[in-house]
Design a protein around this nucleic acid. Structure first.
Length: 452
RNA sequence: GACCCGUUCGUCUAGCGGUCUAGGACUCCGCCCUUUCACGGCGGCAACACGGGUUCGAGUCCCGUACGGGUCGCCA
């Protein structure tokens, strides 16, 4: 069987984490099985679809690396891939139903006659689920009165203006695009019997279904776009790696069976399988997502890190061609969970001036004799001719000895003098990158900076 | 409200009848490493929703209850 999966977002103007995860699972399943991943934009609701709103979703998928084999911009045999352009196809399918007398007009809309029997969903994750649409649909819950009211179980498939409804186009397109596996959120499980009825009406065998559990926010309710971590473009802006976000999304509702948590894209592809998908909903944990990102950052080579961090370095005004950049990135890589954390860490290397943070100022106040520490350090470091890690360490050590204190006593003042902060990257290598002249100058300036 | 799906540490999960005094990861807290921070290493806190069955034996199977989520649109 040729595996063909699809992601069918409606253009809402943003790519939601839930949608992205659905896309990921579909992409992984298709790629793993040598199949195709199709992207189809479900923009049948003209009122909600705008020109740009699809682009955000496409950009988000590209950033995650979930490239589609067919879809917008990648024309395949089954296009067009925007539902708004497939009206003729839908009309033809409607005609089939009309000929079979399975539809009728109702106040201008078109309804599909639902069969009075159990439709059984054979779901790869949820098992068999049987629903009789006639029975189930003949009552409706009225939110306003909190009561059940009589309803028409036959489903509307076309609006009076001629545009089609989700259930209908979804099935028609899955038939036309030869979709073999439908992997989607569990919120669609209750819709599936309707889709099965349509497949049956068209005389086509339905695809294999796999309804994946939902991702909820930490409060246990549906993730809304206001929840932290809900929107993909925010991951881009805050310095996540696409591979890391994929990794974390995969982990929400799936496990490899062993204890592995961090996966390269290749490993994910190799290990992912529907059989490892959990049945229960999961809650989003931003801290773990951060941790996964940090792991991925640490696994990057320096050139790859430079590429990934480029936008953040640029907006911080750090020159991409600066010869000290690679060394600085190496120091920052060990301690960053987000790419956006890199510039602040390495900035002391590149900026002409530093400013002392309030926390640093506070920590040094009345702590040691800063003026003496600085003058001793300057004196001792001036004598360091070979400005290397070892030599600088020896220099600091000399200063410590002459003051009869432990080397650690001098490190904090030295760090604040050189970087302005109490924490940061490995200090001595930073001093190497900053250079002897600037380093000495900064240490010399510290007392006056603190005084002012 | 009806129907559907689910329920193992705070969170993500392993577990597919005995190897579970329940394993891993994140978080948090200690300790070690180290010139600081981080990384790393070591350790700690912490869970089978409840009640009935089935079975020699149940976290694992069945049934109820409770709780959570989903669906019930001329949204997708």
């Amino acid at each position: 069987m040729t595996v063909r999966t699809r992601f069918a977002p409606s253009p809402t103007g943003f790519l939601h984490i839930g949608g992205a995860r659905t896309a990921l699972y579909n992409w992984l399943y298709a790629k793993k099985n040598g199949g195709s991943f199709v992207l189809r934009v479900e923009d049948t609701d003209a009122a909600r679809s705008t020109d740009d709103s699809a682009k955000v979703i496409l950009d988000g998928l590209k950033w995650l690396g979930l490239e589609w084999d067919e879809g917008p911009g990648v024309e395949g045999k089954f296009g067009p891939y925007f539902q708004s352009q497939r009206q003729d196809i839908y009309d033809a399918y409607l005609e089939k139903l009309q000929k079979a007398d399975l539809v009728y007009e109702d106040e201008g809309a078109t309804r599909f006659r639902v069969p009075d029997k159990d439709m059984v969903v054979h779901d790869r994750i949820c098992g068999d689920v049987a629903v009789n649409l006639k029975t189930a649909g003949s009552k409706r819950f009225d939110e306003a009165t909190k009561q059940e009211v009589e309803a028409n179980p036959d489903i509307v498939i076309r609006r009076p203006d001629g545009s089609y409804i989700f259930h209908f186009v979804n099935v028609v397109d899955d038939i036309e695009m030869k979709i073999s596996h439908v992997i989607r959120g569990e919120d669609h499980l209750s819709n599936t019997p309707k889709h099965l009825a349509l497949f049956e009406a068209f005389g086509v065998a339905p695809p294999i279904y796999a309804h994946i559990p939902l991702n909820l926010n930490p409060s246990g309710t549906k993730m809304s776009k206001r929840d932290q971590g809900a929107l993909i473009h925010e991951y881009v802006q805050s310095g996540f790696l696409g591979a890391a976000v994929n990794n974390y999304m995969a982990l929400l509702g799936w496990s490899s069976g062993d204890d592995q948590e961090v996966f390269s894209p290749e490993e994910l592809l190799e290990k992912f399988d529907l059989s490892g998908v959990n049945k229960a909903n999961s809650k989003f944990d931003f801290k773990k997502c951060l941790w996964v990102n940090g792991e991925h950052i640490r696994s990057l080579s320096i050139p790859d890190l430079q590429t990934a961090a480029a936008p953040f370095l640029e907006s911080a005004g750090i020159d991409a061609d600066d010869p000290r950049l690679l060394g600085a990135l190496e120091l920052a890589r060990e301690r960053a969970q987000l790419l956006s954390e890199i510039p602040p860490v390495i900035e002391p290397v590149f900026s002409a001036d530093i400013s002392i943070t309030d926390a640093a100022r506070e920590k040094l106040t009345g702590h040691v004799d800063i003026a003496k520490v600085c003058s001793t350090l300057v004196q001792s470091l001036t004598e360091v001719s070979d400005w290397s890690v070892d030599a600088i360490k020896a220099g600091i050590n000399n200063a410590a000895e002459s003051m009869e204190v432990k080397m650690g006593k001098l490190m904090l003042p030295c760090r604040v003098a050189v970087t302005g902060a109490t924490s940061g990257a490995d200090l001595v290598p930073m001093m190497v990158l900053i250079g002897k002249e600037t380093t000495l100058q900064r240490i010399e300036n510290l007392p006056s900076l603190l005084g002012g």
